[in-house]
Design a protein around this nucleic acid. Structure first.
Lengths: 173, 173
DNA sequence: GCTGTCATGTAAGGCGTTACATGATTTG
DNA sequence: CAAATCATGTAACGCCTTACATGACAGC
């Protein structure tokens, strides 16, 4: 029962208005990509399953086989349920930190290079998020409001990684 | 080619001395669990594959079918290669933040509850890591040294999440 | 002798990635 | 009419989780 967050991301995006798989795909390429990346094939597959489970329905069809999906009442219930009851996520895998663990295998120059790369990465992410912050036109919808909150999380996270990488590089005697 | 970090975690742990699947499992239940959780079945399966690929070999056998694995030269090369060349990990999925995105679906009390839960979670993680920090006997090995660096990352991360959750709760009303 | 720990292995099923495959419609 | 975009769907393969399954050895 736990996990399956793609389902809930899709349900969440359908709260405001119906959308096609293609529309939803675009949303996942935007700000959502930072929080929950999803591929085209995954989205279409999951939409089919959601429809089979009657959490969404095809509300309209358009040119080129376009199918617009709308949330059902059951879908809305499921989304609320997940929002309220989903238990804390277990520790995420962190490939970057895993590398840090084994830094002792490398020589000094290589260690410095690894930490530099992490620093750069953090800086680039921060820049990207600041750009995102400026490029999105924030209206006063709920998604804007809470999307901004999520973005602030990302900004603080990047800042933390930046600070840590600087501190860590300092620690290398 | 990218991904497959469990392999490299296992190779990394075998750098210092040979170990059995069971030994390695214990390591994954300890500090490594915060960075790269792995289950028993996964570890045994991956060790078999690593042996088939000749990155490790069975260096000794013991009672109860115990098999001790040691790193081969090829394994050491592969580990170094991964450490130096593995490209930045793409954005991790973040179920907690995904919930934040859709907070608008809930009513005020429920929103507060979600953010409170995130705050608690961050506090608990921080306490757990501080406990870990005290309970591990840090020697002057590489793994201790860089393990401490990774732990510092975790502490800063928890602190950031704590601060963010407090800020976000403030934003609500 | 019983219990706990040591010790390894396999199978089913879900989720994710990449790649393949196809075709309609709009726009210049 | 050519190219870009819109639009959906399927298949193969890998990783991870959960559960099942088995048995040897040590200490009491």
């Amino acid at each position: 029962m736990w996990g399956m967050s793609l389902r809930h991301a899709l349900l969440g995006l359908l709260v405001e208005h119906p959308a096609s798989g293609y529309d939803l795909l675009k949303r996942f390429e935007g700000s959502l990509a930072n929080v929950w990346p999803a591929s085209q094939s995954q989205i279409y597959t999951e939409l089919t399953k959601l429809a089979a489970d009657e959490l969404i329905t095809v509300s309209d069809t358009g040119p080129r086989g376009r199918k617009e999906y709308a949330l059902t009442d059951a879908g809305r219930v499921e989304l609320r349920h997940w929002l309220v009851d989903s238990k804390p996520a277990r520790p995420a895998r962190n490939p970057a930190l895993l590398r840090v663990f084994f830094l002792g295998v490398l020589d000094r120059d290589q260690r410095v290079a690894v930490l530099d790369e992490m620093l750069d990465h953090a800086k680039r992410d921060q820049a990207a998020m600041e750009h995102l912050s400026r490029s999105i036109d924030w209206d006063d919808s709920d998604l804007s409001r809470y999307g901004r909150m999520a973005l602030e999380w990302g900004l603080r996270f990047s800042a933390m990684r930046r600070d840590w990488a600087e501190w860590a590089a300092d620690q290398l005697d």
